[in-house]
Amino acid sequence: MSSGAVQTAVPLPRPCSAARNVISFARREVRDAVSSRWFVLCTGAFAVLAVGVSFMSLAGSGSSGFAGFGRTTAGLLNMIMLIVPLMALAAGAGSIAGERERGTLLYLLAQPVSRLELLLGKYLGLGIALTGSLCIGFGLSAGVLAAKAGGADAAAMLMLVAFTCLLAWVMLSVGMVVSVVSRKVAVATGVGLFVWLALVFVSDLGLMAGAIVFKLRVQELFIVAMLNPLQAFKMGVIVQMNASLDVLGPAGMYASQTYGRTLPWMLVGVLLAWGVLSLAAAGVLFQRKKSI
């Protein structure tokens, strides 16, 4: 090694702005995600399922245009509620825990960056990668609809994409909380899976059981259902399709009659609250964590 390595003078070091550091971490995260097997696998799986569901929905209905798209959306909705939270939770759970397990977290934190900048950068990067992954799947699905049904309701399709991306960012926030408190990726992934199970299956069954056991009134049932981001997502998509919430039973009927046009904004608000509060919790926990 040349001793000249230390002979070049540069200006006195100054730390970067927070925004610049966040963007640096986000760019690195996107680059790492795009070149990872995880990203390729998730994108491929989502695209195949989205195209498959679109194709089968249209083939079964024999209809075209918006009617065909409505049926396709119903199929896509159930698929999205299973796959997207799983993808986002897994991505979020592996983020900080992965850096910690590889020993790279310590090295990154030894640079002139704050813990919050690192967390936000990783969140932003993973969110962008997830959004890209979902857009590829939806793009292919829209292509199938256009080719087979002669066109789909573009506004409704865009609304579905937007709601799905919002759901992905929300579940990514939840995954970040899990990641911050976990020492190993395996533990973080396990906890993430448990959260996914709880939100997807246990809360639905719990809601039904709770309604019977505690004799919940319809407004209470609606509020409890709204606490689950997946239920808020489902109601939001159905409302945005101009379909009646009657399909969701008495709670849906109550919601549409009571809140009317404000309902979509309430549902978006619930999702945003989940995302913001989870990310804030992840930030606070990460800042306070004593060991790296």
Binding site: P13, P15, R20, R28, Q111
Partner: peptide, 8 residues
Amino acid sequence: FFAGIRRV
């Protein structure tokens, strides 16, 4: 990446 973080 580290050049970006270190502002050089």
